[in-house]
Every structure is written in C-alpha cells, then in structure tokens.
Amino acid sequence: MTGVELDPVEIQVLQDLTILVFAPFVSGAIAHLGARLQGRRGPRVLQPYYDIAKLFRKETLVPEEASWVFLAGPVVAFACYLTVPLLIPVLTQYPLPLGYMGDILGGGFILSLAGFAVALAALESGDPYAQLGSSRAMTFGALIQPSILFVTFTVALVTATDLPYFEAAAVRSSLGQAIAPAHLLAAVAFFLVVLSDTGRIPVETHASTLEFGMIDEARTFEHSGPALALLKWGAAMKQLILYVILINVFAAPWGEAGSRQVGAVLLAIPAFIGKALGVGVIFAVIDNSFSKLRLFKITEFMAVAFLLAVLAVLVLFLGAR
C-alpha cells in the first residue's frame, strides 16, 4: 500500500474540523434550497459564514440584570458541540481512540448539556420571549427523550453495545440488516427526533419571525455580537451532528474511510457532506410540504416518534425468540 497513513488523533481532529467548518455551509445550502422551492432566490449558500463573521466583529451587549451565565452559556454550548464529534463516526468506519469514551447516551447527554446552557443563558436575559422559548425547548426536549432512549435500546439490542460505530457496522454487514424492521423503525423514529431537535416543520418554523410559535429560535433574542455568533454556529453544528448520527449510524453508513490512508480519509469528507446535503434536501422538502403543528399538537408528533421507537424494541423482543 502506498500513501501516508494518518495518526488516529489527527483523524479525530479532522472529524471535529469537518463539523466545525462545514456546519454553516450545510445550513446555508438548506436555507437556499428551501427558498428556491418556494420560488424565491433565497440567501447565498455561504451567507451563514458572512453572518457569523459579521457578528464576531460586533460588540457584545449584556442586559443589566444578567450575570456571567449569560455570556458563559454560548461558550459552554459551543464546547459541547465540539466534543460530540469525537464520539461518533463522521469520517471513519472504525472506532477512533476517543470513540470509546462515550456511547449514544453519552453523546445525548452532552447535547442536552448544550441545550441546558443555552436555556440558562436565555433565562438570564430576563426577556419574556427568550424565557418562553427556553421553557418550551426544555419541555419538548424532555418529551422527545423517551424516543431517544428507546432508539438507544434498539441499537443496544441489535449490537449488544450502544456504541454508534457498532450499529453502523451492523447495518453495513448485510442488506438484510439494513431493512430489518427494527432497524427501519429505529431509523424513522430517529429521523423524527432529528426533525424535532433541529427545529424543523412540523415542530417549529425554522426561519419564522413570529415569536409565539418559536421554540429554539426565541432563546437567542437578547444575545448579540460574538455570543450570538457562537449560538448560531453552535446551532448549525448541532444540526450537522444529528445528521451524522442519522446518516452514518442508521440510514447510509457507506462511504466513510475504511483505512487510515490520507486519501481515503480526505475523500470521506466530500462523501459525508454530499450525504448531509442529501438529507438536507429531504428536510427542505418536508419544510415546504407540511404546515407547522399547533403548539399543543406537538405532543402528537412526539407520540408518533415514541411509538415507532417502542415498536422497534418490541420487534426485537419477539424477533429474538
């Protein structure tokens, strides 16, 4: 074999960088496509980068009553979003050294911590809409948790571990595994979880300016400057992280590097971004084909996700006999 082999640590850093760098790009692409589907020209694909760059140049305003938590929140959240890519298969089929550090639940905890930090910061601001947003976000986050748990159980029952790498390997192992009912159910359930966690229709209008329907978006109302930049960037990263889990664990774990060759690993980056954009297209289409649910109807959506996740476990329960 020719070519330079990368150190696992280098690959790990590369995974993080991939998420960090390309997250605004994927967000921008989805926003662009969504606008096109509505017959508008839409923002440029690279617009999120400009936004973030502009925000970093601006000054930070802090409400009078706010304490240090107001500014620490965005930073903590951003740090969390940088940690999670270490645990999940972004570019490689094989587990990296830190991949054993945390399982799906671990990743979930870190993501929740990020959400918690943002919510705290929003509460500190004293702005009623921000508080409304964070209380809603925490409520719906809690409601979607059971689904995530049962998806995790499914993974654990299939692979006897709940490390994301192994579920992906199980799916790759045979086509039969990919279309096994339990796997399909868990994948669809997780798809709904992603839909909810990334604030997409039918749970939330992503780019709305109507405060009453807002959940996640409302939380950043009082933030400005670099803090807001971190929040926006973090939200994009969270979205891409969830896409990674959806794509590289459940739906299509093909195309990642099987070796440590530089070429293979570097090739995995465009492959992954391509898949992420593919998922983005699906989300954009959903965004444009359905209407937002009324706030009190969102629980129905959560119930569906939960139903699918529970069924996945039930299927495994009887299938094991």
Binding site: L157, V158, T159, A160, A169, A170, S173, S174, L175, G176, Q177, I179, A180, P181, L184, L185, L307, L311, V315, L316, G319, A320
Partner: peptide, 28 residues
C-alpha cells in the same frame, strides 16, 4: 439477542414489515 450476522432471511423481514404496517395503520 439477535447477534451480528445471524440476520434472518429477508423474506421474513419483509413479512414483518407488512405486519408492522398493519399495526401502524391501526394506530393511524
């Protein structure tokens, strides 16, 4: 526990999926 590699036949899986659809349509 269904270990790796002992995946049942695809036919059975297909039947399972159809049976699942029966239940899901009941929920619907």
């Amino acid at each position: 526990m269904a270990a790796l590699g002992t995946s049942p036949s695809t036919l059975t899986d297909a039947a399972d999926v159809i049976a699942l659809l029966v239940l899901l349509s009941e929920f619907a």
